[in-house]
């Protein structure tokens, strides 16, 4: 495949491209970042990436949300975009928010105890106190 063609494909699927990039950034942050706070934020990145992917899957250019605003206009499928992914994203956001809260609460507890956000340092201190 030509470079131009690849770029054209990526531009056509720009939402998917962006969401995969964002997902990888979030995943890398969660796995490799040593700062607990940044790990939790990375989780937000990762979840947002998935939400972008899902919403873009349901969105159709030029169509509107499936709400009947004017009863005199007959409702046809062709006018509306798919509402199901939006419903899934809504559920996903609830899950993501609660996990962010839980993660931050745990981070705060650890910070109060060990006065550090670096997970390596916390692990070292915890190991010391165990021995």
């Amino acid at each position: 495949m030509e470079l131009n063609e690849i770029l054209r494909h990526l531009a056509e699927n720009r939402f998917e491209t962006a969401s995969v990039l964002l997902f990888v950034v979030g995943l890398a942050g969660m796995l490799f970042n040593r700062n607990l706070f940044k790990k939790v934020v990375s989780m937000g990145f990762m979840d947002s990436a998935i939400f972008l992917f899902l919403t873009s899957a349901g969105y159709v250019e030029g169509r509107i949300a499936p709400i009947i605003a004017d009863p005199s206009v007959p409702a046809t499928v062709e006018v509306y975009s798919n509402p199901l992914p939006a419903g899934l994203v809504l559920t996903g956001i609830v899950v993501s928010v609660s996990f962010t809260a839980f993660g931050l609460a745990l981070t705060q507890r650890l910070y109060k105890k060990y006065h550090s956000l670096n997970i390596d340092e916390i692990m070292m201190q915890a190991r010391k106190s165990e021995d």
Partner: peptide, 19 residues
Amino acid sequence: GQTILATIRYLIMSLVGSG
């Protein structure tokens, strides 16, 4: 302290998995 540390490690790996 130990269990909180274990929990947050568990939480992060779990979230990677579910993501």
